[in-house]
């Protein structure tokens, strides 16, 4: 009798375990479904978009004005969907952001990793991380209300004509936002440089800064570069700051004092407010989304690969 109940219980157990196993696999596979969902929905709508607008016009067109006219006989009634001005605008703002975040982030990491006492490092590092935790809509508001007007007034004093939605305002605020990203990856890369190398340099009578500049930073450089690439991916995909502080109309320029628009701004512009789902305008947003996904994915993959390889090099 005892044996039989034991076997029964075991059998019941086994069925339960099977069910749990299936549940676990299903949940893990959810991540795959999300990816498939993203790629499929973007691709599907993009293909429909390319039926209306030739792919070459999209990729190489230098004119972006998606406003389809009210009457079909108006000039430019079909709208123009050339992505080049959006790409240059996105690149311009990202470059401005990185030229602020890279030096500040790397030097902050140098200070925190090599100079700060453990106690002050324990305070300063989390404080720096707060910058990454502030919602982007807050940065956007700050850029639009405080930084942009201040820059414009400053420009007026200096005799410069700075647009009120200048790339400089949006880019610099975005730069501050990604400082913690650069600094924490740089910090990891710097602390991964073996103590033996630092000691070799210090043992030769080098000062701390000579050791950092000539030994530590060159050894940590790949990791830092990877981190900056990850930060670039973040800057390219950032939406709210540019929606609130950058321009709304396409402008093919590399002048940081002018207003430019970005890929993400245009996605928001095309999809907020009234829209019919099948118009070229809404479909264009998905084509922009696919472009954005591709670019960020490439940046990320290269960046993470470099960071990981650099980490292994000293393990």
């Amino acid at each position: 009798m005892v044996d039989i109940t034991g076997a029964l219980a075991q059998k019941k157990n086994r069925i339960n375990e099977q069910a749990i196993n299936i549940l676990l696999v299903a949940c893990a596979a959810a991540a795959i479904f999300v990816t498939i969902g993203i790629v499929a929905s973007l691709l599907f709508e993009t293909i429909r978009f390319f039926k209306e607008v030739p792919i070459l016009d999209f990729l190489f067109g230098t004119n972006w004005s998606p406003q389809t006219a009210m009457r079909s006989d108006q000039v430019g009634s079909s709208g123009a969907f050339g992505i080049i001005p959006l790409i240059t605008g996105t690149a311009l703002i990202s470059v401005i952001a990185l030229s602020i975040a890279a030096p500040l982030g790397v030097y902050s990491a140098v200070y925190l990793a090599e100079y700060a006492k453990p106690a002050s490092r324990a305070i300063l590092k989390p404080m720096l991380e707060i910058l990454a935790g502030i919602p982007t809509v807050v940065y956007g508001f700050f850029a639009a209300i405080v930084v942009a007007p201040a820059l414009r007034d400053f420009g007026a004093l200096a005799g410069l004509d700075i647009a009120s939605a200048s790339a400089l305002a949006a880019g610099s605020v975005m730069g501050v936002m990604i400082i913690p990203l650069v600094s924490s990856i740089s910090d990891d890369a710097i602390t991964a440089v073996p103590q033996a190398l630092k000691e070799a340099s210090i043992g030769l009578g080098a000062t701390r800064s000579e050791t950092i500049r000539r030994v530590v930073l060159p050894a940590a450089l790949p990791g830092i570069a990877g981190g900056i690439l990850l930060a670039a991916s973040r800057a390219v995909g950032e939406t709210m700051i540019v929606v609130m502080a950058a321009g709304l109309t396409a402008n093919l320029t590399v002048n940081p004092l002018e207003a430019v628009t970005t890929v993400t701004v245009q996605i928001v512009m095309l999809l907020t407010g009234d829209q019919e789902f099948d118009s070229a305008k809404t479909l264009a947003a998905f084509a922009l989304g696919l472009t954005l996904l591709a670019v960020t994915l490439i940046f990320n993959s290269i960046g993470s690969w470099i960071v990981a390889r650099n980490r292994e090099a000293y393990d």
Binding site: P194, A196, A200, G203, G205, A219
Partner: peptide, 14 residues
């Protein structure tokens, strides 16, 4: 340290 140099346990070339 310029006058007293050092060689370490594990070779540590840059």
């Amino acid at each position: 340290r310029r006058r007293i140099g050092m060689v370490f346990q594990k070779p540590n070339p840059f």
